[in-house]
Write a protein that binds this DNA or RNA. Structure first.
Lengths: 103, 103
DNA sequence: GCAACATATTGACAAATATCGATATGAACG
DNA sequence: CGTTCATATCGATATTTGTCAATATGTTGC
């Protein structure tokens, strides 16, 4: 998987309505899957699928505790996502300098 | 379209490999569609499709100039996207205060 | 060990998305 | 006006994604 593909995957974590709902809940702190499930209108396997996408993107981390799995937002992952967004939207300081983007 | 859906659409702008390539090019400043097309391995109609998604998300703005269309990153749109990302990842200051997330 | 429970994985399917080629729109220029 | 050129839109198709039901995995407590 190329760099663009991998970075797109980070943003893809934020592309789904239910994943945004999940992130919003996790802003309050750690939460277990069953608690998240209570507040969403999806099945258990679907939640598990979304949590995997969020974790794979590095935006959320999980902690196993007996039969429960607790999830929380990764501050590092969130910072990395924010940096990445900036990387793709911050306008270069001096476009007139030429030698920009390999021209 | 609900709020979550609309906000997911902003992030969706960043979810595609080719759109990330496009944004990277636009960081150098305004660029016309034909110039973008030269540096991508996609057809013209596909580029047009991607530009529509980027513009609809507010991340890119277009400027018509005769038969050409010039695109550039919207600094306001980029800032809005960054704020939105923060909205979904910043951890609440005082979770112990209760009354968090409508509990 | 076994029953109950929480979560993950699998397989199937519908909906959304990226892509293309063909065609439409609309500007510039003779 | 008709031709050329740049971009947008349309229709079709392959791929990806979100969803579910069913099943598997792994933990707890009897």
């Amino acid at each position: 998987m190329g760099d663009y593909q991998r970075q797109a995957a980070v943003f893809r974590a934020f592309c789904d309505e239910n994943r945004l709902r999940i992130l919003e809940m996790l802003r309050c702190g750690e939460m277990c899957a069953c608690k998240l499930l209570e507040n969403l209108d999806i099945g258990q396997s679907t939640l598990s699928h979304h949590m995997k996408i969020l974790c794979d993107a590095g935006v959320v981390v999980s902690r196993a505790d007996g039969k429960w799995t607790h999830y929380r937002i990764s501050e590092e992952g969130a910072a990395r996502a924010a940096d990445l967004l900036k990387t793709y939207t911050a306008i270069h300081a001096d476009p007139s300098a030429g030698a920009c983007c390999g021209d």
